[in-house]
Amino acid sequence: MIIRPASVLLLVLTCSTALAQDMPLTQVLLPGQGWELVGSGYKFTEGPAVDDKGNVFFTDIPNNRIHRIDAVTGKVGVFATETARTNGLMFGSDGLLYGCRNGDRQVVAYAADASHTVIADNLPCNDLVVTSDGRLFVTDPANGKVWHIDDKRKKRVVAEGIHPNGVILWPGQGTLVVTERNEPHLWTYRVEADGSLSHRERYYLPLRMLPGRERPGSDGMTVDAAGRLYVTTYAGVQMFDPTGRMGGVIHKPQRGSLANVVFGGPRLDLMYVTAGDKVFRRKTKVRGAPYFLKPRAGSR
């Protein structure tokens, strides 16, 4: 067998590229590790958000409370009350917890003592994402709009004509992803320097739909450090690779609602989901990529 070194290298490159492109669920899930109950007895849980210690905050919308799951003990406590049906949540790099305070039609920022300041008014919103430099993208399903709030807290519409629900950025924050509950795809947009959105595409497609249902019910999303995207749907948590190909569906922890997902815990390897009256988590092989962290090499 005579093989020239150059062709050997080429072969190996070809193989490794092919392997690197495939992202099956086995790269994410640990054998024998299923869902674990974190908390129950809520009315409707949403908006899981991780802080820089790995603590996870979530909202119980009808009960007007935001809860905190301790990164170390896993115990759940109340963080804020009378939250005016606060929905989507995310931490900024300033340590504040930004939220869609929907009952007041406001976007607000909660401080560590649970007091809040208003970031934007007259904005009925569902979900939001905070960039590492303190700007926000906010979905407004009622009016079919995506808003951008700049670092001077000026708001403007950057996308419309869709019914946006969940919103997330790629780890490098150059691409924005938006869900529509009733469409078999997720939208991607390029983020321009001034926060405007361009080059919309049905990049994530097709989503898994349950037999007999014409809608995927896609809702909240998160990303991991390798650029995989996770979206909650009727069928479960659907995982996509960075080129928009669906890599697998993770079972729901229970029947019924599955609204949102985030990676938390001290190592950011615990997948948390808000599922109706409960919150669950499971250990994974991957790590979340919150924007307030400096991106790891290759994760952009």
Binding site: W170, P171, G172, Q173, G174, T175, T188, R190, V191, E192, A193, H199, E201, R202, Y203, L205, G227, P242, T243, G244, R245, P295, R300
Partner: peptide, 16 residues
């Protein structure tokens, strides 16, 4: 689709 933001990953459109 090249990213506008510095250092961000471009959107590779081959599979789409």
């Amino acid at each position: 689709i090249p990213a506008t933001r510095k250092g961000a990953r471009p959107r590779r459109n081959r599979s789409f």
